[in-house]
Simulated scan of single mutants.
Amino acid sequence: MRAIFQGKKITGILSVLPENEVFFEDEVENYNFPSQQTMRLKKIMGYEKHRISKSTSASSDLCVFGLNDLLRKELILKEDIGAIIVVTITPDHFVPHVSNIVQGKCELPLDVLCMDISQGCTGFLLGLMQAFLLLDIMPNKKVLLMNVDVLSQKVSKQDRNSYPLIGDAATITIVENDRLARDIYFNLYMDGTRGDSLIIPAGGSRLACSEQTVQMQDDGDGNLRCLDNLKMDGTSVFNFVQTDVPPMLCETLDYAGLKKEDIDWYLFHQPNKFMLQKLAERIGIPREKVFMNIVENYGNTSGATIPMAIVHNLSNELLSNKRLCCLSAFGAGLSWGAMTMELGDLDFCETIISNF
C-alpha cells in the first residue's frame, strides 16, 4: 500500500531502558557451541551488550515509567493527549490492553482513545500511520505512540540465533498536527505466506501453553528452545531483507520524488550490524548514512529500534535542526515498509533508565 500524509510531524521522542545491562561475553557459556566459535559473532554481528528487563517486569511498566517522566517534566500535558497507541507483541495480558493499563495508571482523561496494535519489527511505521490517521479527527490533540517489547522473556537463553541480539525497551513518540510540515510518503508490503520465518509457536489460541510447550529441544541447529520461545529462520530472514527490501525502498524514494543522495539519514530497523551492512551495499547508499549501532548497545528492541536509533545518534542534532530521513523496517509478518519524512526541531529527544 502507498499513502501520503500531510500536515503531520513528530515533536518528541523518549527512550525508556531497563536498568539491567548484560554483556555478550557473560552469556557465551549459555550456548551449546564452543566459546571461541561464539565469540567470533561479536565482531561480525555487532554484539556487545543488551538491555534485559526483570522477569517480573511487563511492557506497561516501561510505558508508565516513561509517560510519568514526561508528565512530571511537563513535556506533555494530560489535557493535550487525544490517544495512546501501544505497539507490542509482548502484552501484559490478552485483556486488558496495554494502552488501557497505561491510561489508568497515569490517570489520563476518560476520553483518551486507547489502542493496541500487535506488530513487531515494522511496528514504528505502522504506529505512525495510525497516529497520522487519528490526528485527522483530533486536530487539537496529540497522539502518544508507544513501541514496547520485553521480548527477552520469550527467547531461550540457550538460543544463540536469537538471544544475543534481543533487547527490551520502550519508546514514546509524540505526534501532532502541523500544517507547515513536509509531506510524508509511506510504502508498505506484507506476505503472510512466509510468516513462519519468525514465530512463537505456543501461547495463542492455535497452541496453548502447557507442560509440553516448555520442554527444551534441539531441533537440529544446535540451539535449545521450546515452543513457548521465539524461533527465527535466520537464513530465510536474511535473504528476505536482501531481496525484498531494496526494491521497496527505491520504489518509496521514487514515489516521494527523491533521489538516494537527497536523504540525510537512513533510519533502519536494527536486526544486526552484518545484515545492515549488506543491505546498505545492496541499496547502494553510503554506510555512513545508516546507523548500525543499536544492537551492540541495547539489542534488537523490535518495533522500538528506529526511534532508539534516532535518540541514540541524533538527539542533539534534531533539537535545533531539520533533516530529511528515510525510515525503513522489515521483519515479522513478514512485513516491510519505508517512510520519508522530515525530522527536527524536537521538543525533546532523550533516554531514561527505569528500575524495571
Rank of each mutant, 00 (worst) to 15 (best):
S15K: 13
R160L: 15
D221Q: 05
R225Y: 14
P109W: 06
D254S: 11
D178R: 03
K273F: 15
F65D: 15
L334E: 01
F330K: 02
V241N: 00
P91D: 04
F33Y: 12
A170C: 12
V102R: 10
P164Q: 08
I294S: 11
A304S: 03
H97M: 14
Q37C: 10
L133Y: 00
L108W: 04
G257D: 06
V16W: 10
L318M: 03
W265A: 00
I85G: 07
D196L: 13
V155T: 11
R287L: 13
P164S: 13
M275L: 15
L267F: 07
K42F: 04
A208K: 10
K260W: 08
N32C: 06
D228Q: 12
M275P: 03
G127P: 03
F274K: 15
L346T: 00
M146L: 14
L343H: 00
F33T: 01
A332D: 10
Q153W: 07
E79A: 11
Q103Y: 06
R287H: 07
Q103G: 13
S197L: 14
N355R: 12
M146F: 05
L145R: 09
L227N: 05
L17E: 03
A280S: 11
A309F: 01
S320T: 10
P201V: 14
C325T: 03
G220M: 08
V214M: 06
L17C: 04
V22Q: 08
L125I: 05
A202T: 10
Q130S: 11
K9E: 14
N229D: 15
D183W: 08
L144N: 04
S15H: 12
D61W: 13
A131W: 13
N321T: 12
D347L: 13
L77N: 01
L180F: 09
I353F: 12
N297D: 15
